[in-house]
């Protein structure tokens, strides 16, 4: 490992330690904002982990997030917390394997379509189960976990997601994915098992989303299918990742922070027009900055260094 890498690693570790002190210096409102930022950081980074290199747009973020939340609502009082998280992870992994194996053998558009309706399907199935089997639509989440603990768990998860993303990029799997993203036919011709690579990566990305949902569940004291599987969450994660830039793993963070703030303001001031405004913001990003903020920064750096080289 080079000196530069070590320095970056040390700076990041120091940053994480500093972030861990956020709960002791903030008031309740600021902490809940920090939790929002942290949760969307996990979701948007996990989204980018798969959709960035493969360019397969996943629209099912909230399906996995909601499954995580429901796992806690069902099992939270009965089992120890780490065990609940583990089960959530396993369920997310299993479902994403199922989705991945049935769609990722084919071209990307089948995957997009499948994920487009997935949250609605899971929502209807959970509703059907609750109405017909348990006979109550909503559930109360009574788990003995403080707000600060939620924040720390999300911070830890964010670090895990970023670290595993970094490790994957350096591995053979990461190289395979970059080839797939550039040209899938070429990837197959050089002997990459493209389906396997995509399925494994999607399963990890989706399991992280499920964990985020499980960790966030104690924030609500009451959940029902409409709350847990709110499609706006998938949409927001997509916007944040695109604004930040999906060709770098750390890109989404640049999108999460401004947009969480913006959505907070929009929800407070224009609750009835929230969806329209978010839709317009999204279109602006798709049209005006297709490579995201990180892309803009890199473009500026490139033109600067070119000028430097000429001079």
């Amino acid at each position: 490992m080079s000196v530069r890498n070590l320095a970056i690693l040390a700076a990041l570790a120091a940053g994480v330690v500093l972030l861990a002190f956020v709960p002791s210096v903030t008031n309740g409102y600021q902490l809940s904002l920090a939790i929002n930022i942290m949760s969307y950081t996990v979701l948007a980074t996990a989204w980018t982990l798969f959709s960035g290199p493969t360019r397969y747009v996943s629209l099912a973020t909230v399906a996995f997030f909601g499954i995580g939340a429901y796992t806690v609502a069902v099992l939270g009082e009965e089992l120890a917390w780490p065990l609940v998280l583990l089960i959530a992870f396993v369920i997310g992994f299993g479902l994403s394997l199922l989705v991945g194996l049935s769609t990722l053998r084919l071209s990307g558009v089948y995957f997009v379509i499948f994920t487009f309706g997935l949250a609605e399907l899971v929502r209807q199935l959970v509703t059907w189960y609750e109405v017909n089997v348990t006979r109550t639509l909503g559930r109360y989440v009574f788990v003995d976990i403080t707000t600060a603990q939620i924040y720390w768990q999300l911070l830890a998860l964010a670090v895990i997601v970023l670290l595993s993303g970094w490790l994957i990029q350096r591995s053979k799997l990461g190289l395979a994915l970059r080839v797939i993203g550039d040209d899938e036919a070429v990837a197959r011709h050089v002997g990459i098992n493209t389906t396997m690579a995509k399925v494994v990566l999607f399963a990890f990305s989706a399991s992280f989303m499920t964990l985020a949902g499980a960790i966030m569940a104690p924030r609500w004291t009451y959940i029902d299918p409409a709350i847990a599987f709110n499609p706006v969450v998938s949409f927001q994660v997509l916007i944040m990742a695109l604004l930040g830039g999906v060709h770098r793993l750390y890109g989404p963070i640049f999108g999460v922070i401004p947009l969480v703030m913006l959505f907070e303001i929009l929800l407070a001031k224009f609750p009835n027009h929230f969806s329209i405004l978010v839709g317009i913001a999204f279109l602006l990003i798709v049209y005006a900055i297709p490579r995201g903020i990180v892309g803009l920064i890199e473009g500026a750096q490139l033109s600067l260094s070119r000028k430097g080289a000429k001079a």
Binding site: V232, G279, F282
Partner: peptide
Amino acid sequence: RDALEVDSILATFGLLFIALGVMLP
């Protein structure tokens, strides 16, 4: 054509939320 497909998915996904935002209120 593939790039257009991805872009059109994103753009029409935005339109979906605008349409919902008009009709739901």
